[in-house]
Amino acid sequence: MPADRLLLIIEDDAAFARTLGRSFERRGYTVLLAASQEEAAQHLQQHRPGYAVVDLKLGGNASGLACVQMLHAHDEDMLIVVLTGFASITTAVEAIKLGACQYLAKPSNTDDIEAAFGHVAGVSEVELPARATSIKTLEWERIHEVLVDTDFNISETARRLGMHRRTLARKLEKQRVK
C-alpha cells in the first residue's frame, strides 16, 4: 500500500471512526482503524501510513498524546492531526510538541482534517476568531470535561467543581451558550 494515501485513524468511538474512514476512502485514501494505542502499534508493524488522525481521549483514560508520540517516533514525516471534544491550550501545545501537525476541536469534518494535513507550521496568516470565548462557554466546557472524567456522575462532578448538585443540574438543563 502506498504510504502517501494510507491513513491510520485512532478513535475509540467505533461509529465515528467508521464514518470518518468511509469519508476518507471516498477521497482515495486507504484507511486503517484502531481503537487503542496497542491496535495502532500492531498496524505499524505491517504498514507505513503517511497520515494519522488521533482522538485525544481514548477509552480507559488513555491519552491520544501517547499515540502521537509513538506515531512520530515511528515516522517523523507522518502527518498527524489530533481531534478532540475537549480542546485546551495545554493539550494543543503538547500535541504539536510531540509531533502533530495540527490540533482540531470536534466537530470537524473530512474537509477540515484534510486541510489540516496541508497545514504548514509557523504560518502567520492564521484566521483569528471574531470574538473571544465567553465565560459561559468556558464554564460549559469545563463542566462537561469534569462530567466525562467522573463517568457522568452528577454528585461527584458537583463536588469536584465546588458547587451544589442542584446548581449543577440547573446549569446542565440550560442550552449551551455560544
Results as ranks from 00 to 15, higher is better:
residue 159 R to Y: 02
residue 104 L to T: 02
residue 43 H to G: 12
residue 74 H to E: 06
residue 76 E to D: 14
residue 1 M to W: 03
residue 29 Y to N: 05
residue 152 F to D: 10
residue 131 R to H: 11
residue 152 F to N: 10
residue 165 R to C: 14
residue 132 A to K: 02
residue 165 R to G: 14
residue 97 K to Y: 09
residue 28 G to D: 11
residue 126 V to G: 03
residue 76 E to K: 04
residue 41 A to N: 08
residue 87 A to V: 09
residue 6 L to F: 08
residue 137 T to N: 10
residue 72 H to F: 05
residue 178 K to G: 06
residue 41 A to T: 12
residue 99 G to L: 03
residue 98 L to G: 03
residue 155 S to N: 08
residue 177 V to G: 06
residue 58 L to E: 00
residue 165 R to P: 07
residue 158 A to F: 02
residue 148 V to I: 06
residue 5 R to Q: 15
residue 133 T to H: 08
residue 164 H to G: 15
residue 61 N to R: 02
residue 36 S to F: 10
residue 168 L to W: 02
residue 13 D to G: 15
residue 11 E to I: 15
residue 32 L to I: 06
residue 75 D to K: 07
residue 20 L to Q: 03
residue 31 V to K: 04
residue 165 R to N: 12
residue 38 E to Q: 15
residue 171 K to V: 12
residue 117 F to G: 08
residue 12 D to Y: 03
residue 17 A to C: 07
residue 53 V to S: 01
residue 143 I to H: 02
residue 101 C to W: 01
residue 64 G to H: 03
residue 86 F to K: 00
residue 32 L to R: 00
residue 86 F to A: 02
residue 57 K to S: 11
residue 2 P to Y: 00
residue 42 Q to D: 13
residue 80 I to L: 06
residue 26 R to W: 15
residue 25 E to L: 13
residue 177 V to I: 13
residue 157 T to G: 08
residue 23 S to W: 00
residue 53 V to T: 05
residue 61 N to C: 04
residue 91 T to H: 07
residue 105 A to V: 11
residue 162 G to T: 08
residue 124 S to D: 10
residue 163 M to F: 03
